[in-house]
Simulated assay, not measured.
Amino acid sequence: MNIYDVSKKAGVSIATVSRVLNGNHNVSEKTRSKVISAMKELDYTPNIFARGLGLNTMKTIGIMCTDSSDTYLANAVYYVEQKLRSFGYDALLCCTGNDYINKKKYMSLLLSKRVDGIILIGSQFVNNSPGSDNSYIIDASSEIPIILVNGYLAGDNIYCVMCNDHDAVYNAASDMIKAGHRDFVYLYTSTSFSGMNKLRGFKDAMDEAGIHIDKDRFHLCTKSISKSNDYLSFIYEKNVPFDAILTSDDSLAVGAVKFAYKHGIKVPDELEIVGYNNSVLANCTEPELSSIDSKVEQLSSNAVDLLMEVLGGGSVSNINTVTADLIKRQTTKF
């Protein structure tokens, strides 16, 4: 038995059951009695973390990320942990890698540690392809709230905090088109929810401007400075012309700057480059890199605020978005 069964038996929402379990006073006595009666009839114990019915919590939140060496994910983990601490919560971090079995194993591990909620950082935890198995997340959400940072999965007790990646890339590409660019290259690192939204933003801007993009002009590659450098050199030697490069990650944009330097191409006069995430890498190139700021600190802070609201029995939206900004530096002049 789980919280869904209690919800159905009592004829109330899962959010209402959660409020009763967390001792929230914003529930009528009649509704509280219905929920408690349903739990008794179903012989449901609100999981061994002893969170329910106003009892004390473990005051611990699980955090999962695929790769703590990744600049974006490492920053997000830092901001999430700091914000949790401000609420008096401890954190347990699991670095899962991209293997589905490991993700499922670490989810089970965190549940066994009696955490009060789990924050999944990055969009690699959800497979949005038709027929994909995301049951390990959905099953966990029947017991505790799950927060996705820059990922999306529909479900009760699952809450998504994301950057509007589509609009961010679309707006940057549109600005470059208005500045006179027609020969684009788009480099991206992932087919995740976030990665596909970025790619759609690029394609939508091109379609709206009537710009044809052949297969050489958008490329999925490893998140690597050298790989993007190598690919751009490859198409350059094929005599594919380009004067504007957009990327889904700053590492790829740094590779583009190195490519330009190697081939004697002047940036931004002959080639304009825009990265993504506004990471520390943006300040490490010469010239410094223009980059889309995906607001990792705000996303992380909002994720924790949302989780605290849910744990307190509050009513919150399942989808929450923040708006990115383009930070213009020396690799652009538009």
Rank of each mutant, 00 (worst) to 15 (best):
V6P: 06
S7L: 02
S13C: 09
V17C: 11
G23H: 06
S28G: 15
S33W: 00
V35W: 03
S37Y: 00
Y44L: 07
Y44G: 08
F49E: 03
G54A: 11
L55E: 11
T57Y: 05
T57D: 06
G62Q: 03
I63R: 04
M64Q: 15
S68Q: 11
S69W: 01
A74G: 11
N75E: 15
A76G: 14
Y78D: 06
V80P: 03
E81Y: 04
R85H: 13
A91L: 05
A91N: 09
I101N: 14
L111S: 02
K113Q: 14
K113Y: 08
D116A: 14
I121D: 06
G122N: 07
S123A: 15
F125S: 07
F125N: 08
P130C: 03
G131P: 11
G131H: 14
D133H: 10
I137G: 04
S141K: 10
E143H: 14
I144N: 01
P145G: 12
G151F: 04
A154L: 03
G155N: 00
D156W: 04
V161H: 05
C163D: 11
N164H: 12
D165E: 10
V169H: 00
V169W: 01
Y170A: 01
Y170T: 04
A172E: 04
M176H: 09
A179L: 01
A179G: 13
D183W: 00
V185F: 08
Y186N: 10
T189S: 13
T189M: 08
G195I: 06
M196E: 14
R200H: 13
F202M: 04
D204H: 02
D204N: 12
A205S: 11
E208Q: 15
A209R: 03
I213G: 08
D216H: 14
K223L: 10
K223M: 10
K223P: 13
K227Y: 02
N229L: 07
N229C: 12
S233N: 15
F234W: 03
I235W: 13
Y236N: 15
V240P: 01
S248H: 00
D250S: 10
L252R: 00
A253E: 02
V257H: 05
K258W: 04
F259E: 02
Y261I: 08
K266N: 11
D269F: 10
N277K: 08
N278S: 13
N278K: 04
T285Y: 01
T285I: 06
E288A: 02
V296S: 13
V296Q: 13
N302H: 02
V304K: 11
E309N: 10
L311C: 04
L311P: 01
G313M: 07
S315F: 12
N318G: 14
T323Q: 11
A324V: 10
L326D: 02
Q330S: 12
